[in-house]
Design a protein around this nucleic acid. Sequence first.
DNA 1: ATAAGTGCAAAGAGTTTGCATGTTC
DNA 2: GAACATGCAAACTCTTTGCACTTAT
Lengths: 143, 143
Amino acid sequence: VKETVILQNYLAEHGCKITGQRRRILEAFLATEEHVSAEELYRKLKENEGSGIGLATVYRTLKLLCASGLARELQLTDGVIRYEHHFDHEHHDHLVCLNCGRYIEVSDPQIEALQEQLAQRNRFRILHHRMELYGICGQCQET
Amino acid sequence: VKETVILQNYLAEHGCKITGQRRRILEAFLATEEHVSAEELYRKLKENEGSGIGLATVYRTLKLLCASGLARELQLTDGVIRYEHHFDHEHHDHLVCLNCGRYIEVSDPQIEALQEQLAQRNRFRILHHRMELYGICGQCQET
DNA sequence: ATAAGTGCAAAGAGTTTGCATGTTC
DNA sequence: GAACATGCAAACTCTTTGCACTTAT
């Protein structure tokens, strides 16, 4: 898959090595569509294959995935770093359900445009942004 | 001042006591217009008066200030909890300068309206939100 | 008098790092 | 076989908690 090649290229360019652990961590990361933390990914790897991958390696590899552009860090309000797919995922923001914990990915070009205007009014040059709307998702409202 | 009364009322209503430490921490918090962390406030208190206020008390009191509506937690990307004034400060978002670290407070009703529409399209009920635009502020662009 | 608050030090959670060992190139 | 990666445990940072002691009501 494309992602594997990207990681391989990144590793090669930076004098890093392709190891079984990195490949398996990438696979596990791609296989999960949620926003995972290092711990969660570590547990998944342990369950699914009983592989003896260390937690530290998961942490290190997730940083690598970010560096290579495959993943992106996400900091929410619980003090845990989560990771989401980044490659081939165009920019989006999140609706975070405070009841079930689901993250709904959204994007709104109008809002982005207004953000740019807001920045210009303040002579500010935006490099990136983040927007999260916290509340209750449709499903949770029904119950 | 108004804030002191608010804290006193909150404390009274919750069977808590008004102590010298709480009063001094509130004062120090109000005296700082930056977005402080518990550690920073603790150091400030130590310098300014050599008061023997414990770090744990600062942490505990900042939580109290949040509960009473005087302060608000702020989580940025460095994993440290910061606090900003909340009472009598209407809602706002932040432009965060990645060069000098300054936080510029902004608010944009048009964006808020679009956020509401975006939520409705997803059958989502917003309770609160956060938006941060990261980039370079005007002053830093000039140098 | 009693319930709550304080400071300290210890414990926690999440993450990073040092090091001996194992792997890739 | 040299350089990098790994797993483990220890260290680290930020925050919370347990406890003996003090203070506000």
